[in-house]
């Protein structure tokens, strides 16, 4: 089931084209990492999905409803944690949660139970009656996530959710979100600058750059595609890298090389054993060939042209 459907989304601010035809589909059970450099259009996309700003072109549907004209129908199924936590500093932690529980129509009799459960889930129950203005950044983040989860929404949108959180709290939150996504008919869309967070949490990755989607795929499939036919060839030979380059070029394309360490990264449709024997035939010894493993960070950097 499609939880979020974005098609041909465009948004300009004056002459600045922020989004240039974005298409994204998010299905039930998907935990999607939305990545891109600063100013690439991530926040604008999130603002459009959450019904705050209107696109110039394109459609955004949440649970089948058009956000442009029917957002208030589906808004109660969406919870958003923006980069700036969006909490009321003059209210206590409990009051902040109770406010949103009331807004979303929690029955009066169980309001306290909802609030206590949400605070417990982020280990803030003992701070229930403390003013949020006294909270650290990490505590505010945790409270904002508790607020987002308080009434069990179907769609959770998180903008930099782990920013400013210590390692143990980050781990607990990741577990909390992983457990939450196991429930039926849920999805999460999150942005983060931390690849570790994305790798730990997400099963799908969407990369945006200069207002266009560069890739949208599951993380495993993306890594598989990216590493297909790519090998690391380590050669310890004194005949000089340019000669080896020439030899390698016959059956492969050299993507990258580290002359100092004799490391060549090649792309070839040939079998690595064939490449190895071919190099030996050419008189090159001490060869090691292994499949290249590209990290998400490397894929991201290559896609956005920073590598």
């Amino acid at each position: 089931m499609k939880m979020i459907h974005i098609s041909g989304l465009e948004k300009n601010y004056g002459r600045l084209e922020v989004l240039k035809g974005i298409d994204i589909d998010i299905n039930c059970g998907e935990l999607v990492g939305y990545l891109g450099p600063n100013g690439s259009g991530k926040t604008t996309t999130l603002n459009i999905i959450s019904g705050i700003i209107k696109p110039d072109k394109g459609t955004v549907k949440i649970l089948g409803a058009d956000v442009l004209c029917e957002y208030e129908k589906v808004g109660s199924s969406v919870s958003v944690v923006f980069e700036n936590h969006g909490l009321y500093p003059k209210l206590t932690a409990g009051e902040n949660l109770e406010y949103f529980a009331r807004l979303k129509g929690a029955p009066k009799g169980v309001l306290r139970k909802y609030v206590d459960n949400a605070l417990s889930s982020v280990e803030l129950l003992e701070k229930k009656n403390t003013l949020v203005s006294t909270f650290s950044k990490g505590m505010m983040r945790r409270l904002a996530i508790a607020r987002a989860l308080i009434l069990d929404p179907r769609i959770l949108i998180l903008d930099e959710p782990f920013d400013g959180i210590d390692i143990s709290s980050r781990y607990s939150l990741i577990q909390l979100l992983k457990n939450w996504i196991q429930k039926p008919e849920k999805c999460i869309l999150l942005t983060s600058h931390s690849m570790a967070d994305i790798e730990a949490l997400c099963n799908k990755l969407v990369i945006i750059h200069q207002g266009r989607i560069l890739t949208s795929d599951t993380i495993s499939s993306l890594q598989e595609k990216w590493n297909k036919n790519k090998y690391e060839v380590i050669v310890k030979d004194h005949s000089g890298p340019s000669r080896i380059q020439t030899i390698l070029s016959k059956y492969s394309r050299i993507i990258d090389l580290d002359k100092k360490n004799g490391l060549f990264i090649i792309e070839t449709s040939e079998n690595p054993a064939f490449i190895s024997s071919y190099l030996k035939e050419e008189g090159i010894q001490h060869i090691e060939i292994k499949e290249k493993h590209t990290s998400l960070e490397e894929i991201y950097l290559e896609l956005v042209g920073k590598k």
């Binding site: 019904g51 808004g75 700036n84 969006g86 009321y88 807004l103």
Partner: peptide, 14 residues
């Protein structure tokens, strides 16, 4: 200033 208005509107508050 606190961006709470973003959260409210995103939650479907009229």
């Amino acid at each position: 200033l606190n961006k709470t208005i973003h959260v409210l509107l995103a939650s479907g508050v009229p």
